[in-house]
C-alpha cells in the first residue's frame, strides 16, 4: 500500500508519460512571452543608436532625441486628454442609459451600434474626420475664436481648413467612445441590485440613486475603462496622421489654429517614408517611448482596479 502520495505524483502518473499536449500548449504560452520579449529587445537594439544622435543626423534637425520626443509626447498626451474629456461624459451617459433605461430591443440596438463604432477601421475615421468633421468645424472655430478668443485655448487665428488638434481630438473621442461605454456598462451592471433597490426603497429618484449609489460603486471599473481608452488614444496613429499636419517642436495650448503639435504615433507614420539612416532609429526609439507610456497607463489602470475592486469581489 502506498503512503500519502504527493498530489503531483498522484495525479500525473499516466499524464506525465503521455501528455504531449501539455508540452505543446506550454510552448504556445512561452511563445507569447517570447513575442513580447522580442518586441522590447528589438526595439531597444534598433532604437538605442538614436540616443547618440545630434542635429546633424536626427529628423527635423533636432538637437537631441529628447528635443524631438518631448513636444511629440506633449502632443500625444494633450490630444488624448482632450479626447477623454469629450468622450467620457457621453460614454458613461450611454452606459447608464443602456443599463437603466434602454431595456429590450432599444438596448440591444444601442449595444450593436456601439460595437460597430468600435469596429470601424482607423483609416475610415481619418477620411471621415477630414471629409465631415473638419469642414463643419471651421465656422464653429471662427465663432469660438471671435467670442471666446480671450481664453488662451481659443486664442490665435482659427484654421481655415479645420485640421486642428481639437478636430483630431474629436475624431479620437468618437474612436474611444465605445471602449469607455462598454467597460462602464460592465462596471455598472456589476453594481449589486441590493444597492440600487436599497436606494430606491429609501425614496431616492433614479437620478439620486445613480449619483449616490451606482456611480460611486462602479467608479473603479469606469476609471479602468477610461485608462484603457487613454492607452488606445495615445497609440492611435492613422486618424491623427490624416487629420493633423503638425509643426515640429511646437508645444501649444491653442486648439483652433493651423499650427498644432504632433503626436508620437502620427509623427512616426508621417515621417517614416522619407526617413533614412539614424532618422529611422529615432523613429523606432520614439515607438519604444510610446510603448513605455501606454504600458504605464495600463499598469496604472490595473493597479486601480486591483486596489478598489479586489476587496469587494
Amino acid at each position: 500500500m502506498s503512503d500519502v502520495l504527493p498530489p503531483s505524483e498522484a495525479g500525473q502518473v499516466g499524464a506525465r508519460r503521455l501528455d504531449a499536449l501539455h508540452l505543446l500548449t506550454l510552448s504556445a504560452a512561452l511563445a507569447t512571452l517570447l513575442l513580447l520579449g522580442g518586441v522590447v529587445v528589438f526595439l531597444g537594439i534598433e532604437g538605442a543608436p538614436a540616443l547618440s544622435g545630434t542635429s546633424e543626423n536626427l529628423p527635423a534637425g533636432a538637437s537631441s532625441i529628447w528635443a524631438l520626443a518631448w513636444p511629440l509626447l506633449y502632443g500625444s498626451v494633450w490630444a488624448s486628454f482632450l479626447a477623454i474629456l469629450l468622450a467620457v461624459p457621453v460614454g458613461v451617459g450611454v452606459a447608464v442609459f443602456a443599463v437603466f433605461m434602454a431595456r429590450g430591443a432599444l438596448g440591444r440596438w444601442l449595444g450593436t451600434a456601439i460595437d460597430v463604432l468600435a469596429a470601424v477601421p482607423s483609416v475610415v475615421y481619418g477620411l471621415w474626420g477630414l471629409a465631415v468633421i473638419a469642414p463643419r468645424a471651421v465656422p464653429v472655430y471662427e465663432w469660438l475664436s471671435t467670442r471666446l478668443g480671450w481664453i488662451p485655448f481659443f486664442a490665435g487665428t482659427p484654421s481655415t481648413t479645420g485640421r486642428t488638434i481639437l478636430t483630431a481630438a474629436l475624431v479620437l473621442a468618437v474612436m474611444i467612445l465605445p471602449i469607455v461605454s462598454s467597460v462602464s456598462r460592465e462596471a455598472i451592471r456589476l453594481v449589486p441590485s441590493s444597492s440600487t433597490e436599497g436606494a430606491q426603497a429609501l425614496g431616492a429618484t433614479r437620478w439620486e440613486m445613480i449619483r449616490t449609489v451606482v456611480l460611486p460603486e462602479a467608479r473603479s471599473g469606469i476609471v479602468a475603462g477610461v485608462m484603457l481608452a487613454l492607452g488606445r488614444a495615445l497609440g492611435e496613429t492613422m486618424a491623427v496622421a490624416m487629420v493633423l499636419s503638425p509643426k515640429p517642436f511646437l508645444v501649444s495650448l491653442r486648439l483652433l489654429t493651423s499650427e498644432n503639435p504632433g503626436t508620437v504615433a502620427a509623427y512616426i507614420a508621417q515621417n517614416y517614408p522619407e526617413a533614412h539612416g539614424l532618422e529611422v532609429n529615432a523613429l523606432i526609439w520614439l515607438g519604444l517611448l510610446l510603448f513605455a507610456v501606454t504600458f504605464a497607463v495600463s499598469f496604472l489602470a490595473r493597479a486601480i482596479v486591483r486596489r478598489s475592486g479586489g476587496g469587494s469581489r
Binding site: 518586441v39 532604437g47 496613429t237 515607438g287
Partner: peptide, 18 residues
C-alpha cells in the same frame, strides 16, 4: 495584458527592427 496595450504602430516598428 501588456501586449493588448501595444499601439499597432509599435508592432509595425518591432517588425521593422527585426
Amino acid at each position: 495584458d501588456v501586449m493588448a496595450g501595444i499601439p499597432s504602430i509599435v508592432a509595425g516598428l518591432f517588425m521593422y527592427a527585426v
